[in-house]
Each structure stands twice: as structure tokens, then as C-alpha cells.
């Protein structure tokens, strides 16, 4: 596997962006992904982002901070981010590391994440009219 060539796809479906992270990321790739997603949000005016980390076997403090930073930045741009499918071992390790990621929305799987975003979007729609 050539780590130098890896790019993480960002898929747009309706109002949402789906980002399946399927490589063990180094720091530069993580930073790159963050700005890529933000640019894509601006470009597509997506209302929600699902970041699927179900195949990630490790999330260290850098990637953890990148993910929670991502959520706060997207929130300022009026977009919700949901982190989907974290593995139990990763969750335990993150908590022990001291990164409890308060304020970050999480979902057990893609389906639940999508439901969560839809709920958000709908309550916003009913609020505004």
C-alpha cells in the first residue's frame, strides 16, 4: 500500500456529504482531509456530514482533535457533523487518553447517523416556518 498516494473520497448525496475514512491516516493527511471537507461543504452547501470511521483501528489525540475541530468548524458554517461507527476499543482508548470529545455527535452506524442528520434538518425546517 502506498501511503503517499492515498486520498480519502468525499461523496455527496442530496444534502449530505459522506466521508468514509479507510486508511490509517498520518497527520498531514488528517489536516488535508479537514480542509478538503470544509471546502466541499462551502461548495456543495451540504447541510450535514457523515464521517465513517468504522474501519479505523486507532484514533490518537491528533486525529481525535481533528475530528472534533472539524465538527466545531462545520457548526460555524451551519452544518452538522456526525462521527459514525467508532470501534469499542477506539472509544475506550480515546476516553483513557483524555479525549472525551464533548459536543461531537456520534452514531452507531450509517443508518442511525443519517436519521440523526435528517431529524436535525427537519426540526430546523419546521422551526424556520
Amino acid at each position: 500500500m502506498n501511503l503517499h498516494e492515498k486520498r480519502i473520497p468525499i461523496i455527496k448525496i442530496h444534502d449530505y456529504l459522506i466521508v468514509p475514512i479507510q486508511v490509517d491516516m498520518h497527520d498531514k493527511l488528517a489536516i488535508q482531509l479537514q480542509s478538503q471537507i470544509l471546502e466541499e461543504i462551502a461548495k456543495t452547501r451540504a447541510k450535514g456530514v457523515l464521517i465513517d470511521i468504522s474501519v479505523l483501528e486507532m484514533v490518537d489525540s491528533f486525529i481525535g482533535r481533528m475530528l472534533s475541530g472539524m465538527a466545531s468548524m462545520a457548526a460555524i458554517m451551519d452544518t452538522s457533523v456526525v462521527i459514525v461507527g467508532m470501534q469499542p476499543a477506539v472509544a475506550i482508548t480515546l476516553v483513557e487518553l483524555g479525549l472525551e470529545m464533548p459536543g461531537v455527535d456520534t452514531a452507531l452506524n450509517m443508518e442511525k447517523g443519517m436519521e440523526m442528520l435528517e431529524r436535525r434538518l427537519n426540526s430546523r425546517k419546521t422551526d424556520s416556518f
Binding site: M58, V59, D60, S61, F62, P88, A89, T93, E96, L97
Partner: peptide
Amino acid sequence: GIVDQTRITTAVSE
């Protein structure tokens, strides 16, 4: 076990 594997991997990454 899987959790200990993740712990040591994360620690060395830091």
C-alpha cells in the same frame, strides 16, 4: 486483546 493492542498503538503514536 484488541483493546490493549489499540492502547499500545495509540500510545506509541503519541
